[in-house]
Computed example of a mutant assay.
Amino acid sequence: MSLKIAIASGKGGTGKTTVAVNLFSFIYENWTHSVQLIDCDVEEPNDLLFFQNFSVKSEKKVEQIIPQIDTSKCTFCKKCEDYCEFNAIVMVPSMQYATVNKDLCHSCGACFVACEFDAIHEVNNNIGTVSSCLVDNDRSVMEGNLRVGSPLQTMLIKDLKNNLDGEYDILIYDAPPGTSCPVVETISDADYVILVTEPTPFGVHDLKLTVDLLREVNKDFGVFVNKAGLGDSEIYEYLKEEDIMLLGEIPFSKEYASLYAKGKIVKSVPIEFAKEYRKVIEYLKQKMN
């Protein structure tokens, strides 16, 4: 059984991906080589940007099954339209018109059940790709890449997680920002969630939303504060009031921002920020024991 760690945040721009790639590298260097990074932010997968050398081992298209209506057989009874919970079917009997909006369809199959006249058949619709990559010749990173315009992030994330390219002791999920369905799908099987936030009013507000979500789905979690010293103490007061574990802090730093802008990770430069990631690793080891 793998230890599954999700890195999430209530808002974009907090440093979630930075924490994910750095934690992945520190675990590889200081704990175990049996670790894999999975970029579940399928609308904007950026994890590979932080590695100077990577190669794509394999790539596969992810397709959904969607209905196609044969108007020569359709009686335009509108039963399939009534069954569709996602308003993906549009039917105008007076014009003998019927169509399916593939971007609204969730492939639930209700319309196939509804149709009594064999007027609906299956076709495949590409929603994106799943790639397996090697970074620095020996570390595994996987990512999903959603087709532009497709709203089916959750479906692609589920396929990504169900088709990993091997067995690893530790899996790190880099989740999308926010608290919507793609985040819920990413953290659904996580053993522990690291929430990345910043000490600003927006950071506190969105952290509270994410904490509510994690408590609702009964997930164990802690908080990693990025850009520490930028705002005020409200974030720390909230963590104390709610008895939430503070896992580590990265100070608001020009040096750290420069590393990020150059696509570098902390381990590549000997600075004090590394100790914060080592603290997280020690805590995760304790959790496992």
Rank of each mutant, 00 (worst) to 15 (best):
S107N: 09
I120P: 03
D169N: 10
T18G: 06
V148C: 06
D191L: 11
K60Y: 11
E63W: 04
D41V: 09
A175D: 04
D103H: 09
V193Q: 03
K264M: 13
V62M: 11
L49C: 10
Y236G: 00
V269E: 08
V92C: 11
I89N: 02
T18Q: 02
Q68I: 11
M142T: 01
I235V: 15
G13C: 03
I127Y: 05
S25F: 10
E63D: 04
I7N: 06
T179E: 09
A274C: 11
K264F: 06
Q153W: 02
L146D: 01
K57T: 12
R139Q: 10
I38R: 03
I5D: 07
E249S: 03
G144W: 05
T186M: 15
A98L: 07
K267L: 08
P67R: 09
N101I: 12
L3Q: 10
S34C: 03
V62G: 06
A261H: 10
K73L: 15
Y277D: 04
E237Q: 13
N53I: 13
V211Q: 03
I69Y: 12
L214P: 04
I120E: 05
I271P: 09
I172F: 07
C84G: 11
D189N: 15
L146C: 00
T210K: 08
T32K: 05
L48W: 12
D206N: 02
A98H: 07
P270R: 06
A261I: 11
R278H: 04
Q52E: 15
C77E: 14
H33N: 13
N124T: 14
K4Y: 06
P201K: 03
S131Q: 15
L160H: 02
Q52T: 11
E241M: 05
S233N: 15
K262A: 09
N226L: 00
C105W: 08
Y256V: 14
T17H: 09
K279H: 02
I172E: 13
Y83E: 12
E272K: 10
L207W: 06
K208R: 10
S25M: 07
S150N: 07
I5Q: 10
F252T: 10
L152I: 05
Q52V: 04
P151Q: 13
N46V: 04
F224M: 14
R215H: 06
Y236M: 08
A190W: 04
L37D: 11
Y236L: 12
T75D: 13
E272Q: 09
L171H: 11
K73H: 15
T129A: 09
V56A: 10
